[in-house]
């Protein structure tokens, strides 16, 4: 498997504060990796380091085979970033901003004008193409920031909270465009603290906390990793006896049992897909009316993983 990004003890310090602390992470090529973490967990610093906007205090990283300290220019030719809070071009118009961005990646006229027009339309910014940046709404400015990545698709696209300030329709538009970019072959890294965004986009999720990566896995593996994270609601035709409760307690993966009412048990289990066939086998002869499974949300996973660490810190 090839990696678009590999970091080696990547560290960024501001005085005594370590914004990123000896990070060692690998991100697969042509996938969408979502970095999830609370504010100040080091996600943005990580994106700024691998886009060479910041210099590491210690360690380094390889981006698409180039070193971010020694081969900055080669890295910048292959990477583009959509920043968290797009600002600084107050008097420019969206069409000029996109045209400029494309020209910086070598897209020439007349092709450039066509690409800019198409991109503005795709991101529903065509009607605002002649407005000054300072007159755009927060959501429009954010969509414009993301749109920059589409006028010359980079091999590695970095997006920092791409849908912050964007309304619900806009969020779906941006997410679908990000997926489209991935399908066209770009490796995507999205930093967010929006769990829904992570669920929608991620091939893999890395959870950040206090400048370190805490865990990396697929969403389904992360869900499975939460002990007792799946909740199985069992409704019986008759009140569940203590014998039934005892059978359930002995099934591997059972973490807790709550009696909602005499005919309804709520069982917390690890990996319901393994637990349920065993439960059905063990409960043969017991009349079960319904089974309802609720998987843990990414919120639950996030809180399970991040909160205990924060409280320890």
């Amino acid at each position: 498997m090839s990696f678009a990004v590999e970091t080696y003890d990547l560290t960024k310090r501001y005085g005594n504060f370590r914004a990123l602390d000896r990070l060692n992470i690998k991100i697969e090529t042509s996938r969408i990796r979502v970095l999830l973490g609370p504010n100040g967990s080091g996600k943005t610093t990580f994106l700024h380091l691998i886009s060479t906007v910041l210099r590491p205090s210690e360690g380094t990283a390889s981006v698409l085979g180039y070193d971010i300290v020694r081969q900055q220019l080669q890295v910048r030719r292959l990477v583009a970033i959509a920043f968290q809070d797009p600002r600084g071009f107050w008097r420019h118009k969206p069409k000029h901003i996109l045209s400029f961005h494309a020209s910086m990646y070598g897209v020439r006229e007349p092709e450039r004008s066509k690409i800019v027009e198409r991109t503005l339309k795709e991101f529903e910014l065509w009607d605002s193409k002649d407005k000054k940046f300072m007159d755009l709404s927060g959501g429009q400015a954010k969509r414009l920031e993301v749109a920059k990545l589409f006028v010359s698709p980079p091999r590695l696209a970095l997006l920092d909270e791409p849908t912050a300030m964007v309304d619900l329709d806009g969020k779906r538009l941006v997410w679908d465009k990000i997926k489209e970019l991935s399908e066209r072959g770009s490796t995507i890294i999205v930093a967010t603290n929006e769990v829904r965004e992570a669920e929608y986009l991620a091939d893999k999720i890395t959870i950040f906390s206090s400048g370190k990566d805490v865990v990396t896995d697929t969403l389904s593996n992360l869900k499975d990793s939460v002990r007792g994270g799946d909740v199985v609601d069992l409704e019986f035709a008759e009140p569940a006896t203590s014998f039934v409760v005892e059978i359930i307690r002995t099934i591997p993966g059972t973490v807790g049992i709550i009696e909602v009412d005499p005919r309804h048990l709520r069982v917390s289990v690890t990996r319901s897909e393994d637990w349920l066939p065993i439960a059905v086998k063990h409960l043969q002869g017991v009349r079960i009316q319904s089974i309802h499974i609720t998987e843990p949300s990414l919120d639950d996973i996030f809180m399970t993983i991040v909160k205990p660490r924060k409280s320890v810190a």
Partner: peptide, 17 residues
């Protein structure tokens, strides 16, 4: 001002030395 407004970091991310 560009550094503090966010213009500088954008320019620094572009493919120029």
């Amino acid at each position: 001002e560009g550094a503090h407004e966010g213009r500088l970091r954008y320019i620094l991310s572009l493919p120029i030395g």
